[in-house]
């Protein structure tokens, strides 16, 4: 699919019907683009602009948010409670991403190399539950892990005593991994499928040992999939609030919970907007650093 796209000439070598058609065609494509572009700019882009504008605003005494030009909301973010919470979210998201990578490689490897004719079925068996309600899946964990849930009553029956799972960072991170690991497995699987598998064999002959083969052959060859997957997991994990809401508590709240509170509980929309903008700026900076680092490395590789 991708290769065909590359080899296809960007314009027909000999335009069959002269210049007029190409003008006509460009007009058609432009007309087709106009409506959806207007929709996305109208709804998505302009709503983002409103968030940025309101982040400089304030809440009136009657509770209504108004636009302004003040930095007070950003000043308010600069305190220990919020900074600690930002750091916690970042830590949870990074740990989630790493755990997802640790799960994705063996799973994708086993399916790609040893799935045989069940490959597609196995991948579908991973994809299907991940597209089914995220909320229900988080709820399922909270029911399983609760103090009177299945896991704890089994532990008590075994004489091991109950363990408090909920309200711990482990539960929240577990929920995030459960929620987003598919976004790591799919790209890693795709890049494993694309790589020349005889390389792994050659690596085994050359390096003797699966670990050294993995680090010197498989990992470099699947780097693009891994880097892509890390982004796809990190982004939603950092903004998540359902996992911390259902599996955690105030001690494990993430940025998402804080933002959600400002908009739907605390009713301080300007402050919530500033938090949202701060998160987006943080994400963009991280993204630029990350993309720079990974693309230079890929270039060195090539």
């Amino acid at each position: 699919m991708a290769t065909r796209e590359v080899t296809r000439p960007s314009a027909p070598a000999t335009p069959p019907a002269g210049r007029r058609t190409s003008v006509q065609r460009t007009k058609l494509w432009g007309t087709l683009l106009a409506l959806p572009t207007a929709w996305i700019v109208g709804f998505f882009v302009s709503s983002m602009v409103i968030v940025v504008l309101l982040s400089f605003g304030r809440t009136q005494r009657d509770g209504r948010p108004v636009f302004g030009t003040r930095l007070t909301n950003y000043d308010a973010l600069w305190n220990e409670v919020y900074l600690r919470l930002f750091l916690r979210s970042l830590t949870y998201a990074v740990v989630t991403t790493l755990i997802c990578a640790l799960i994705a490689f063996p799973v994708a490897y086993a399916i790609a190399l040893h799935g045989g004719r069940f490959k597609s079925v196995l991948i579908a068996a991973i994809v299907v539950p991940f597209f089914a309600s995220y909320l229900i899946r988080m709820y399922a964990w909270s029911a399983l892990l609760s103090d009177d849930g299945v896991v704890n009553s089994a532990l008590r029956k075994a004489g091991l005593g109950g363990v408090q799972f909920l309200n711990t960072p482990y539960a929240v991170i577990g929920g995030l991994v459960y929620g987003y690991v598919v976004f790591m497995i799919l790209p890693v699987y795709a890049s494993l499928e694309r790589m020349d598998l005889s390389l792994i064999e050659a690596g085994k002959d050359l390096y003797h040992g699966p670990l050294r083969t993995f680090f010197s052959v498989t990992l470099p060859a699947t780097r693009a999939g891994l880097f892509g997957g890390m982004l796809l997991v990190f982004l939603p994990a950092l903004g998540d609030f359902v996992s911390a809401q259902l599996l955690g508590g105030p001690k494990t709240y993430m940025i998402g919970n804080l933002i959600q509170q400002q908009f739907l509980e605390g009713q301080n929309w300007p402050l919530g907007s500033a938090m949202t903008v701060a998160m987006m700026i943080g994400l963009t900076v991280l993204m630029v650093i990350y993309l720079r680092a990974t693309t230079t490395r890929n270039r060195e590789q090539a």
């Binding site: 709804f43 998505f44 302009s46 709503s47 983002m48 409103i50 968030v51 309101l54 903004g239 998540d240 609030f241 998402g256 933002i259 959600q260 908009f263 929309w269 919530g272 907007s273 949202t276 998160m279 987006m280």
Partner: peptide, 10 residues
């Protein structure tokens, strides 16, 4: 969550 917040404000 960012899309959600932005849509709410919009």
């Amino acid at each position: 969550i960012v899309t959600g917040v932005a849509a709410l404000l919009f």
